[in-house]
Design a protein around this nucleic acid. Structure first.
Length: 107
DNA sequence: TACATGACTATCC
DNA sequence: GGGATAGCCATGT
């Protein structure tokens, strides 16, 4: 069974529009918590990979970060590229342009 | 119950 | 600009 935090993280991930990405910090802030480490861990569990767009979660620096799945970061990068996001050298081009901070959903 | 770990972030040098 | 260190909270053993 997923932990309460995981449930919130997955709910947040599902609301990310296609072609957009978010950061662990943004998710933590949306959940009103500072546990970015716990959020990262929750995303890492990823019990429903196809159901949860976990590949849209990147680092606060604009880098792709990590990924647990087939191909690892390579697959994650490919998925982002398929959504119209350009990734170069493990870093997202126009990162802030694709960044989704839940600002429209926070209250 | 207590300790160690983690798909991170921010600060300091 | 780049690397290293500290801080952070939840989860698992």
């Amino acid at each position: 069974m997923p932990t309460p935090l995981q449930k919130r993280v997955y709910d947040a991930l599902k609301m990310i529009p296609r072609g957009k990405v978010t950061t662990y910090g943004a998710i933590a802030r949306y959940l009103n918590t500072r546990a970015v480490r716990a959020v990262a861990t929750a995303v890492g569990k990823n019990p429903d990979a196809p159901s949860v767009p976990c590949h849209r979660v990147v680092l606060a620096d604009g880098r792709v970060g990590n990924y647990s799945g087939s191909g690892g970061v390579a697959t994650k990068t490919e998925l982002l590229t398929e959504e119209g996001i350009t990734v170069r050298a493990g870093r997202i081009v126009a990162f802030e342009a694709h960044l989704y901070t839940f600002e429209n959903e926070s209250c």
